[in-house]
Design a protein around this nucleic acid. Structure first.
Lengths: 329, 329
DNA sequence: AACAACTTGGCAACCCCTTGCCATCATTTG
DNA sequence: CAAATGATGGCAAGGGGTTGCCAAGTTGTT
């Protein structure tokens, strides 16, 4: 079934297995002549080191697991891409895991993989803080789009970002906004709401919250109806998927965007650029987020455990057609 | 670093390691009382079997690698999702690998992972046939969106699909179509062109090919210009990304879709639904494709090696606003 | 009571690779 | 020329779990 082992190579080259092993892992310990011969024989036999056997002893698997709270959301796409690219540079393998928005599934997957990976990337984890600390006690962990004081994390600057959003809406004349909230157990959802509230207060506009909603296009209908019912002139949706769903429903009901209602999303997914009108959304360097997270994970061993890094990446408000001046009724 | 082993459990329970092992893997071989005690002790200690150690002996890793030719394409998203879901059901781990559209990278990644996985899912592989056979000789392989006589594959029905596309355009009065081709080393690209040609011939319309183009939005500009230059009334783009890029460029040049030019894409990605006009595109059950591919891979051992299954899944032409009757100039 | 038949548990080898330690051989130095 | 030094390769253990084989223990039979 499997390929040749170092035993085969050793036999074919007429040396001990240890010599073969060292020829690859400690080139200095073997004479050039012997090494060349071994390498040649290995190549001829098509020998590939078995990473599992290696991991068994070293404890290093050269693998990191990325657990995504819902892989159906295109938002994670860029993060996955960035993570994959960075991992590949270091010849690490990226294991992709879907938690299906379920803390239980997430926990089980983590426990199952724990002995087999060098660390975890948890993207928008739905686990309670307590569980996150437990995971971190077993393996290095980097949180993505979530923060916890004692853990390493990478997030976009939601405080600044939400300020940009509110400021933008205020400058268009909106005196009031409605936040269509994300899932209850989403750290991002509560953080955004807090940041929006604070920004609204500073800027002097009102802010209300409706929800929670599962952040999918299909939920946009209910969210839109609720927003209309609340007589909102500006809605800030938890993410672009929800925002797009909201816009679809508004169009269906004959309401114009942005003339009647302005809509803002989060994440700047690809579809936000091509929908009509284009969706104003708070974007950020998601690829960098993925890249940085892997970077932090791979270098986790070389840092003091106390005061772990908490990277905050800049956001950018991408203005498109979905926001406009408030109607002067 | 790592958790407790069966040695720890054995010591704590006062039995031999083999008994612990059997308590989990061959429940019948151990008395219920002993097993209960072992399970209890294991749970208390937080014992998790080490999958690598297990794989070392059994050769089964409970892991499949999915190699995607370009992870930036949302099209793969659904396939990844389907694959991930099916793998999880069987408690298999899905390893996601990006080939970056490079046959070399793809080959290296496969070789690197080969000893560590139970099989490969190759999505739209860019490798030459020869290399695919080599991979298949080492490990079970399932091709996705690609066919090769001696290998297992899952594809959408491009023959029927392309017929639908051409038939649709013909019924709108188009006498001629232009195919904006995908990458040169893409099996899909040449297959689509062949199927389009054949359908065009049967239906009695003309078909021309322009390209190749890298199937990304940014390439849509050049593709659109070339199509306009060719006086096309209907363009069939290699995929939705390219089609969306084409539509953007056409709008920029003041050409109306579908009044001046009809546009058709492939894949039915999410953005095709929200762009303006909506993109008519040939979709299919991509989630099923991913699911089926894993299914076939996991059951690969229980089939005869000759005459491997070649699953063809149905397509559906999704009609949206980007196609219309040809202008009666 | 003696023995057969069956159940349960333990020993030890094995999977593949790494590595500490030691033996061997060659080279250098006094 | 002997002894010290260094370069090189081999032996064997170990890492976590599995499994063939055998021993001990249990139950049943005559």
């Amino acid at each position: 079934m499997s390929g040749p082992t170092i035993y085969d190579v050793a036999a074919a080259a007429g040396v001990a297995t240890s010599t073969v092993s060292r020829a690859f892992s400690q080139p200095g310990r073997v004479s050039a002549a012997t090494r060349d011969r071994i390498v040649a024989v290995a190549a001829e036999l098509g020998y590939r080191p078995n990473p599992h056997a290696r991991a068994l002893l070293s404890g290093k698997h050269h693998t990191v697991a990325m657990v995504v709270s819902d892989i159906a959301n295109p938002h994670y796409f860029e993060m996955i891409r960035g993570a994959e690219m960075r991992a590949r540079v270091s010849e690490y393998t990226l294991l992709l895991v879907n938690a299906e928005e379920s803390p239980r599934v997430e926990w089980e997957q983590i426990q199952r993989l724990s002995p087999a990976v060098d660390g975890f990337l948890l993207a928008a984890s739905r686990l309670p803080d307590e569980n996150l600390r437990q995971v971190a006690a077993q393996r290095p962990v980097v949180l993505m789009s979530r923060e916890l004081p004692d853990l390493t994390s990478v997030v976009l600057d939601h405080v600044e970002g939400c300020h940009q959003v509110v400021s933008h809406l205020a400058s268009l004349g909106h005196r009031d906004l409605v936040y269509l909230a994300g899932p209850r157990n989403s750290w991002m959802a509560s953080t955004r709401w807090a940041a929006l509230q604070r920004a609204a207060e500073q800027i002097g506009v009102g802010a209300r919250r409706i929800g929670p909603f599962t952040p999918k296009v299909t939920q946009g209908g209910a969210a839109a109806d609720a927003a209309v019912n609340a007589r909102a002139t500006a809605v800030v949706a938890h993410n672009d998927l929800l925002a797009i769903g909201v816009m679809q429903r508004l169009a269906q009901r004959g309401l114009r965007v942005p003339e009647d209602v302005s809509v803002v999303g989060f994440d700047n997914i690809f579809a936000a650029d091509v929908c009509t009108p284009g969706l104003t959304t708070l974007g950020g360097a998601h690829t960098d987020l993925g890249r940085t997270a892997v970077e932090l994970l791979l270098t986790a061993g070389s840092r003091a455990a106390d005061d772990p890094p908490r990277v905050v990446l800049p956001t950018e408000l991408v203005l498109r057609g979905s926001t406009g001046t408030v109607a002067t009724a």
